[in-house]
Design a protein around this nucleic acid. Structure first.
Lengths: 271, 271
DNA sequence: TTGCTCCTCACGTCACGTGAGGTGGC
DNA sequence: TTGCTCCTCACGTCACGTGAGGTGGC
């Protein structure tokens, strides 16, 4: 007969764990002294303890361990459980590996470039959105070329939507395309209508995207710096840009754009 | 101004999380309606939320996130935290990878060999032990050759230890070496004395080992099967035997060895 | 008498998820 | 009136670790 301490030493587990397994009915002592409450185990119960530990080490919960040990699962179910565990482990290893590379990217910024890393870049999947939009052409990507072109489009678009009786859902969106004439500027607002020839605006479905996003606070003339931070982050973390970037105007009231808040969304793919 | 629901949608987090971050002081609403208790956030607080999410995604606790965001850690400390996280992640990936290969070994046994895997093999590190021992030579590893040689050694060793006034600590141990004459059988018992020429037994320090262990229940004539299960497990899980295997007699009272309990310990290395 | 082992509660962990029960504006 | 959003508790999660407070044999 082993005391609880003996069994704990042989099984390399804590006494507390053995009491816990007793409470759960996973491993009950062969004999309990009725007067003192002391637990006594037979030597062969180490075998059961080993089974508990081995199954637990695969990552099963104690409840699952109990079901396997008490033959409540047949071979097919066990196989299913193992496959599920395999998938879960593979996924966790993958996400930990991605996490590790983000940690390393930050360390790299600190150690070799002496920069305190920008830490408000976040990966998010943006869903597809239907928008109404107007477009115009600007000479270059410089804010001083873009702003005068895009700013007037929004009040204009608003007025046209109002006349058509269309409700606006969420914040305004801007996105840009390059062509031979310069930069095609899209001023867009989320709507919930069908495209129609009667409308004096376009209705476009913007695709769902995996994006890296950052929030820019302040005037449009400095938004280029924030775009550059985002680009550096994407590069340092081993992603690549893919598709058309968007700006979301989360707060843009008043003439003074120094209080504006804009979310920048850059679509990305893994290398 | 955003309601809590607006911010949750933009930040892709749950409303509950925002309330939790508020409670922890991580991200407090810019304004709370005194009569209704409704939280209101400014658009730029999305930036802070993003920082929280980005740091949390690196695997920091919310407390650490708070310290980093509130500038309670300087660059050096941040660097230390990142290095620690890197080490933790690397370790977790390594142990999950090992876990995954154990799961796959079991699946392999079920799927291609149709066996229900033996599930009481456990890896453990056994510490170094000092033992007193007697040796003898047996003709082969077969139980019928070993048992008659080793069994008498234990009472003999016990008697000698008693005469020398030496206390016995834990269960008896057997281990085996092959040489030109056959198998050298070591019958050993843990003791806590120095080696001395006055003793009529050897005092030996058995080394610490990483081992795979299994518990054998029943008579010695069938212990070979259990050794074979252990060997199969070691093979299937990508380990290699290394060093001298041991048997620990956890329960060996009475003449009837069908009630005996023995732990088999095979020292292993990663491939 | 001191140390050691054993016992039974019962709180704490970590970041929320999930009701329960209720309010306020369209 | 129904739906939707918001609110505040407060329990549950998972496998124990860690006291607190006490007992029994060397």
């Amino acid at each position: 007969m082993f005391t609880i301490g003996d069994l704990a030493r042989h099984g390399r587990v804590s006494v507390r764990m053995l009491r816990h397994y007793d409470a759960l009915g996973l491993l009950q002592p062969a004999h309990v002294d009725p007067s003192t409450g002391h637990r006594h185990y037979e030597a062969h119960q180490l075998s059961r303890l080993n089974r508990v530990i081995a199954l637990k080490d695969l990552g099963f919960t104690l409840q699952q361990v109990g079901e396997v040990l008490d033959d409540k699962v047949d071979v097919e179910e066990l196989r299913g459980m193992l496959r599920l565990r395999r998938a879960e482990l593979a996924e966790r290893i993958a996400s930990d590996t991605a996490r590790l590379s983000r940690v390393e990217a930050r360390l790299h910024m600190i150690e070799s470039e002496g920069l305190v890393p920008t830490d408000d870049v976040v990966l998010k999947s943006v869903p597809a959105v239907r928008v109404a939009e107007l477009t115009a052409t600007a000479a270059s990507f410089e804010p001083q070329d873009i702003s005068p072109v895009i700013q007037p489009l929004y009040p204009d678009l608003c007025a046209r939507l109002k006349r058509a009786g269309v409700q606006i859902a969420d914040p305004s969106i801007a996105y840009y395309e390059q062509n031979a004439d310069g930069i095609v500027v899209h001023a867009a607002m989320p709507v919930n209508v069908e495209s129609s020839p009667e409308h004096d605006f376009e209705v476009v479905d913007l695709p769902a995207q995996d994006t890296a996003t950052i929030v820019h606070r302040g005037c449009m003339s400095e938004i280029g710096n924030t775009w550059q931070s985002l680009a550096r982050w994407i590069d340092a973390n081993g992603y690549r840009s893919a598709g058309l970037a968007r700006e979301l105007y989360l707060y843009c009231e008043g003439q003074d754009d120094s209080t504006w808040v804009t979310e920048l969304q850059e679509p990305i793919t893994t290398v």
